[in-house]
Design a protein around this nucleic acid. Structure first.
Length: 420
RNA sequence: GAGCUCGUAGCUCAGUUGGUUAGAGCGCCAGGUUGUGGCCCUGGAGGCCGUGGGUUCAAAUCCCAUCGGGCUCCCCA
């Protein structure tokens, strides 16, 4: 096939009719669950200041160091948002949302952008939904965030997942742990992979996340963060696990779970699916008690999650979950001749105002072609309008499924359809 | 940034050791019924075989390059 003149950019895809209905279903479920969990929607711009993302997500992360779609215009530095927690935190600070009182429970749905090589479950423009609880230090918030996330997957029917949890510690615990890790790796530093050697100084925690073969034997026996948590953090983590158990949300502790965004503190979690291929994380999140301060706000402990919609769709596909029903059209008006067309155009609004979906042929096709079209559109009824019908003031209402016809006035047709 | 792999009709794909005007199924359009869909039958439209170059009497087929897609590593959703 010859390549068309214009195509989408690499890793950016059109969501076409037939597919988009699945997205609508997912979005509807997210909104319904959000309502149950008392989360309010927030919509932030697609572009943010580059510096916000750099400071929020972390200068050394892959996201910031090599995956940003960023450009300058005059004095301004724009970046297509690669995630939505930093933008939500920014909005929180900018609009003093804490003044609304209590904690802020916010959720979002929208496109994110990262300049990576696309593969299964990974696009350059991808879509996340997520939620944040801002202003709560209590483990109850961590658990409600997880419960919210799980509720959405349960509603959709994706239940064969594994929830992994860990605590990545507060700054004090992290400092102690970082030192312990460095002490542990130092004797074997030269045997580690190149990447891990680089991370040794900056962020040794990330070594634990490495999938390089040569690192594995060292990672296995590495000290684990949970042994270095201070009392307060350990207690918080214990509480989170206890509450998860109370809610009968099953989980696995994974002491090596480290998240790739720098803002995480204490609770971290990830939801894994066996149906996804190489990119097996449906969603993940955790606490980010320091982010709001980092970007210039008051100290605001917070916890959140983000999840990928494309991956959710892949999982549904694998599990054979039907997300969208066939679209149905209530009425297709089949017209024969100019007069009939005129009649149809003047009566379409009456059908539509009555809450019915209704359509006609625009391009003067034969009756047979119109019937075929009506069939393709899954029309429940056709109204057939020709010379005879116009003269008599009675129209042929055809029930497409039953293949039965009646001759009725337009008012009678409206009545009948209204009772359906 | 690196590796593997694939580019033939709108879609899914055949195309035998290089050999006349490149095929099928589905889809689309039309006819079979001058006013009736789904099933069936018939016909039609739609391809410079991703692009460029080379080898050859002859290339979808062999060689080189290039562009594009998919998957994977890294990392994340």
């Amino acid at each position: 096939m010859a390549q068309p003149t214009f195509t989408t950019h690499l890793g950016m895809v059109d969501i076409l009719p037939g597919e988009v209905e699945k997205w609508q279903t997912i979005e509807r479920i997210i909104r319904e669950e959000a309502k149950k969990f008392n989360f309010d929607e927030i919509r932030t711009p697609i572009m943010e200041q580059t510096e916000l993302i750099a400071r929020g997500v972390g200068q050394l992360t892959d996201i910031v160091s090599k995956e940003m779609f960023a450009f300058e215009r005059g004095e301004d530095h724009y970046v297509l948002r690669p995630e939505c927690t930093a933008p939500v935190a920014r909005a929180f600070v900018e609009h003093h949302l804490e003044q609304r009182g209590g904690t802020q429970n916010l959720y979002y749905i929208g496109p994110m952008f990262r300049a990576e090589r696309p593969q299964k479950g990974r696009q350059r423009q991808f879509h996340q939904f997520g939620a944040e609880i801002m202003g709560a230090d209590d483990p109850a918030a961590d658990v409600d965030i997880i419960a919210f996330m799980m509720a959405i997957y349960n509603r959709i029917g994706i239940t064969n997942t594994t929830l992994k949890v860990n605590s990545v510690g507060d700054p004090e615990s992290r400092k102690a742990y970082k030192k312990a890790l460095q002490d542990y790796f130092r004797p074997n530093l030269s045997k580690l992979s190149e990447i891990s050697q680089k991370r040794f100084e900056t962020n040794p925690l990330r070594i634990l996340d490495s999938k390089e073969d040569e690192d594995q034997p060292f990672i296995e026996d590495a000290p684990i963060i949970t042994d270095f948590l201070n009392d307060e953090t350990a207690e918080h983590y214990a509480k989170v696990k206890e509450l998860l158990n109370n809610l009968e949300i099953s989980f696995e502790e994974d002491p090596h779970l480290v998240r790739g965004l720098d803002y995480y503190t204490r609770t971290a979690f990830e939801l894994i699916s066996p149906d996804l291929g190489a990119q097996d994380a449906l969603g993940g999140g955790g606490r980010y008690d320091l982010l709001v301060e980092e970007i210039g706000g008051q100290h605001t402990p917070a916890v959140g999650f983000a999840a990928g919609i494309e991956r959710l769709l892949i999982a549904c596909e694998e599990l054979g979950i039907e997300l969208a029903e066939e679209q149905k059209l209530d009425i297709y008006i089949v017209t024969l001749g100019e007069k009939a067309r005129k009649w149809a155009l003047s009566h379409l609004p009456k059908l539509r105002n009555a809450g019915l979906s209704a359509s006609i042929d625009y391009i003067g096709r034969s009756m047979k072609a119109q019937m075929k079209d009506a069939n393709r559109e899954n029309a429940r009824y056709t109204i057939i309008v020709g010379e005879n019908e116009l003269n008599e003031g009675k129209f042929t209402l055809r029930d497409m499924k039953a293949s039965e016809e009646e001759s009725l006035t337009f008012e009678e047709i409206l009545d009948q359809l209204a009772t359906d």
